[in-house]
Every structure is written in C-alpha cells, then in structure tokens.
Nucleic acid binder design. Structure first.
Lengths: 269, 269
DNA sequence: TTTGAATCGTTCGCACAGCGAAACAGCAGT
DNA sequence: ACTGCTGTTTCGCTGTGCGAACGATTCAAA
C-alpha cells in the first residue's frame, strides 16, 4: 500500500533555480526516508532505484550517514539499516510539545471510558504521525503508538485535519492525495466531502472501515495557535466496540468536548 | 547540564580529506541536533554559534530543511523549531526493532512487580535513547518515554552498555566522556570502574543517585547478535521505592534473568 | 575449472554547484 | 546619524556530484 506520495523534492519543477536550496542535504534525508516499517535492510542499489539518485552519489551519502550514526552497515548482508541517531532527532521535538502534557490526562480518561484508544497526531506530507497515544487498560486495542503513521485521506484524524485547513492548503493537499492514488480517488473524494459536511454540522469526522475494515473512529482537529497548527485527535478501535451510532452520538461529541478543553487549557499557559 | 559531547564531525581531525564524506549533509543534520528539550525555538545566529557553521551556510541549510518539512519558521519570533518531518525518520527504525515486541511482556511484568519502570535503550553518541519503556500501573514513577535520552556515563543503563563493549570501543567512548566533562571526570571514572566490577561479579550495574538525586536503578546489557548490539535494559525509579539493598539482592538479579530470557527468545525467531 | 554475463560497489577526472569572507540591507535602541 | 544586532546577496575559488570506466562477486553454462 502507498502511504506516502512522492512529493517531488529535487528535479524540482517550479523553482529548480533556488540558489538557497542545498540538494545534498535533501537527498541524504530522502535516503533515510526510504526505510519503512517492514524493510529494515536496504542496499545501495535499491536506494538508488527508489530515489533516482545516481549510484556513486548514493554511495557517498550512505557512507556519510553511516559515519554520523544515522545508518549502520551490515557486513553479512551488504546492506544498510537505520541506526540510533535517527531517534534522537524526533524526540527533541516531542519533548517541546507542551500540548502532549496538557492533553494526556483527558485523553487517558476518554480512552478508559470508550475502551478504545485516543491519539494526537501531526501531519507530515500525506500522513498523520502520532505524537501521543492513550489506550484503555483493557487492551483489545490496536498496536499504534507514538511515531506510527496513518494516511491522511481515509482516516478520521486525517480528514479532521484536512477540514481545519485554509482553502489554499486544502486544495494543495487534495491535489497530492489524488496523484498518490488515482485509482481510488473518486471514493476517497466522496469520503472527504462527507467529512466536511460532518465537520460543519457537528464538529467531528468519522471513518467507518474506510482505512482498515473493522476499524472505526472519530476525529477532531485542534484549532490552536501558531505552533500547534496541523494537529488532530482521534478516538478509535475495533468496529464491534465502536458501532457507528455510538461514534455519532457519544464518542464524537465527547471528543469535541475534550478538544475544546485542551484548547482553553493551552490558552491559560 | 551537558548531556552530549561535541563529537567533532567536520573539520574532521584524522581524515579531513575523505572524498566520500558529504559535508553539507552532515551539517544539515547537525543543525537539527541543536534543538534540545527545553529549547523549542532557535534563530539562525544561534545555530551558527553552536555549530560553528558560517551564517550564510546556516541560512541555506535552514531554508532547505524548512522546505522539506523538518523545520518550521515562526514569523512572530523570527526563529525556527523542529517540524513533523523529524518524527517520521525515527519511527521506521522503531518499527523494525523486533526486540521490542519480544521483550515487552517480560518488561511490563517486571515493571509491575517492582512498581518502577523498566526500559530498553540504544546508544547514540554519549547518550542512551529509550526505544521501549514500561511503567507500573501505580505511576508514581518518572516521566521518561520512548525517545528520551539519558547520559551514558552516570546511569545504570549507560554503564551496563559500556561494560559490554570491546576494549577498543570502550576506550574510545571513555575518551569522549572525559572530554565532555573534565570537571567531574574523576568521580565519573570511579563510578564506571565500580560498574565494571559489579558487572563482572553479578552481571548488572547500578546507579544510586549518580545521575539524579533520588533516582536509583540497575542496568544490564543485551548481548545479542549483530543488529541488537549496543542496547541495554534498566529498571529504575524513585529512591524510596528502590533502596540499594533491594536493587542488589532482588531487582538486579531479576533484570539479569529477564535479559537472558530475551536473548534466548530472540535466538528462536 | 574456466568463461561469460549478470549483478554489485567504488574510483576517476572534469564541469559546475555550493561555500564563505565580505559587503549589503533591515530594525531597534540609544 | 550612529552602533549593534539581525538575515540575505555577491562572486571568485574550490569542493563536490556525476558519467563512464573499473574491480569484485556471484551464478550458469560450457
């Protein structure tokens, strides 16, 4: 499945003559992005194929990343894998997100009440990345945790985020969502239009089996100030625990209430 | 407090004429590393000062990182902060670490038993970065979670890791630890030497208030195969819950037993 | 075992892109 | 106007990316 689109980075169409743009850096990071869950090891040739970067250059980049501790080389396999360095980058960001501390208690409470999981995520390209996740103690729930990625177009959290965006940004993302999955575009588009209506009427969006069969969820965007932009909450779990009616009449409104509380609490700090 | 040393990266002493090394990439990543918990926003000038990179170059790098979604620019403050892109990198690594799934149940069990927290970390430069953490349901415990960093030289987890290293690597790290904190070096050195004796005799190390007052813990390295190198477990919490005697006679041995079990379980897969 | 045809990754030398000292520009606050 | 602080632009020199050529492996067929 294609979770992320290939947003063009180099060979940049529009503004390829950006003298401020450092290509080598962009490419090195693109190398790191090639590694995905389930693909621990990648060889130079594979990286070259995926990124379109010439082989000798990939060689130099992997060599550099290895020396810096972001990649590790496996002699036996002749392939690279991600090393501990990459973890360090992400955490400094998490640690500086005070929303997490503010929201956590209410999230945990709703997770227990709903016997499902409640999460907070930020957008990255065409995914939502979890930055906080609470699950009920009765853990029949799914295994998504901080750092997990879910698609933006078919999940409640993702659609909620889309609904909160200014028109320009919304259109830009819709364009990319279409390009990433032309085949399912009509269905996806309908889902997002429905989400917009739901959001306008009730303040939350739903995804009932759209992403994975038997996963139901509601989503609400966080309408914060500057730095908390592009974040959204969800409450979701297995379908038998969260029938549509319960989402609409109980959990949706409760999640909206949770988010309003978080927003005022943030204002106070 | 200085948690991480400035391990020289460019202006590289030994092999500055490494034609394989891409400086621009190293510098870009060094920029991202400047952001630490508690320092959400940094300006170009500050970044230039910290890294020693000339201002115009910092300008180009931040511009590039912003376009790629790893940094975000705050108009109001005229400063940069980490953006969602950095999270994505770390998670692909976590998802591919099967040790986590193997170890989690036993970790949770020990966490409940000890009413403290049990964590697994990997080394990154002079820190240990948590990749998994379980806490007891009775959560009087400290707030460290996946992605947190603790120093290598004064914590049980870090010292346990040091004890497991081959001599060459051990010496290399000791050198850098000394350079990072000359002032406290004598005391730190004694602590590590004690850890080596403890490890040789009983298989675990301890830190009783060495890192933070009133934080006590035991640590055990994971002696795995290739890819699980440089990982270690700890079990720690507030001092009043974990008196030295309990660490030595109960939790230390139990943590050793846990790690042995994880090692054999990993061999089976 | 040898040979040929595939891989794979690294080396080489040239052309050019990115670096950085210095100069420039925007803003505050004396 | 000056000083002290930002961040950006200029432009010559140089470090760096890339095509092509080169080794190193592997596997299959001769």
């Amino acid at each position: 499945m294609l979770m992320d689109s290939e947003i063009r980075v180099f060979g940049d169409d529009e503004e390829s003559k950006d003298r401020q743009f450092v290509n080598a850096l962009a490419r090195g990071l693109e190398i790191l992005r090639c590694f995905r869950p389930g693909e621990a090891y990648l060889a130079n040739a594979e990286l070259a194929a995926r990124t379109g970067i010439p082989k000798p250059t990939v060689s130099r980049l992997t060599h550099t990343l290895t020396k810096l501790g972001y990649l590790a080389y496996s002699e036996s396999q002749g392939q690279y894998r991600l090393a501990s360095g990459v973890l360090a980058l992400g955490y400094s960001m998490l640690a500086n997100l005070d929303v997490r501390d503010i929201a956590r208690p209410a999230m945990q409470e709703l997770a227990e009440y709903s016997r499902a999981s409640v999460s907070l995520g930020v957008r990255d390209r065409l995914s939502m990345v979890y930055v906080e996740s609470c699950r009920s103690s009765a853990r029949v729930t799914l295994q998504l945790t901080v750092g997990s990625r879910i698609p933006i177009a078919t999940t409640a959290m993702g659609k909620a985020l889309l609904c909160s965006l200014p028109e320009r940004e919304f259109d830009y993302l819709m364009d990319h969502i279409r390009l990433a999955d032309e085949e399912n575009w009509p269905r996806i588009k309908l889902g997002i239009e429905q989400a917009q209506r739901d959001y306008a009427e009730r303040g939350f969006c739903m995804s009932v089996g759209e992403w994975h069969q038997d996963i139901h969820s509601v989503g609400v965007p966080l309408l914060g100030i500057e730095r908390e932009k592009s974040m959204a909450f969800n409450c979701g779990g297995p379908g038998f625990l969260l029938p549509r009616e319960k989402l609409e009449n109980d959990l949706g409104p409760r999640l909206v209430q949770l988010v309003r509380k978080v927003e005022t609490d943030m204002g106070r700090v």
